[in-house]
Amino acid sequence: MKIFAILLLLIILYSLGSALYYMLKDGGESTRMVKSLTIRIVLSLVLFIVMMISTYINYIYKG
């Protein structure tokens, strides 16, 4: 589970970095930045939901 969470966090950071790159490169004339930020939001929600489900079924120790 730790490896999955770390891998997903790295992908989220990559998506955030690519959005910054597209914002600086395109100057707001392209939709690539919006797509990259949308991917980041979806991945963040997936990570949050997986962590909540893992906590609920006691896969992750709460105490």
Rank of each mutant, 00 (worst) to 15 (best):
M1G: 07
K2M: 09
K2Q: 06
I3M: 09
A5P: 00
A5L: 10
A5E: 13
I6K: 07
I6N: 03
L7S: 11
L7W: 05
L9T: 07
L10I: 14
L10D: 09
I11V: 14
I11F: 13
I12S: 04
I12V: 12
L13N: 02
L13Y: 03
Y14I: 14
S15I: 00
S15C: 12
L16V: 13
L16R: 01
G17S: 06
S18E: 15
S18F: 13
S18C: 08
S18L: 15
A19Y: 08
A19H: 10
L20W: 06
L20Q: 05
L20I: 11
L20F: 12
L20M: 11
Y21M: 07
Y22R: 03
Y22N: 07
M23V: 10
M23N: 15
M23R: 15
M23Y: 12
L24M: 11
K25D: 13
K25W: 08
G27T: 03
G27P: 02
G27L: 06
G28T: 06
E29T: 09
E29Q: 10
E29F: 09
T31I: 14
R32M: 02
M33V: 07
V34W: 03
V34A: 11
K35H: 10
S36W: 00
L37K: 03
T38E: 03
T38S: 10
I39F: 05
I39K: 00
I39V: 11
R40L: 11
I41V: 15
I41A: 12
V42P: 00
V42I: 15
L43R: 04
S44Y: 01
L45C: 09
V46E: 05
V46S: 02
F48S: 05
F48K: 00
I49E: 02
I49W: 01
I49A: 13
I49K: 02
V50S: 11
V50K: 05
V50M: 08
M51Y: 10
M51E: 06
M52H: 05
M52E: 10
I53K: 03
I53Q: 08
I53C: 05
S54N: 11
T55P: 01
T55E: 13
Y56T: 12
I57Q: 12
I57S: 08
I57V: 15
I57P: 05
N58S: 15
Y59L: 15
I60E: 06
Y61M: 02
K62P: 08
G63L: 11
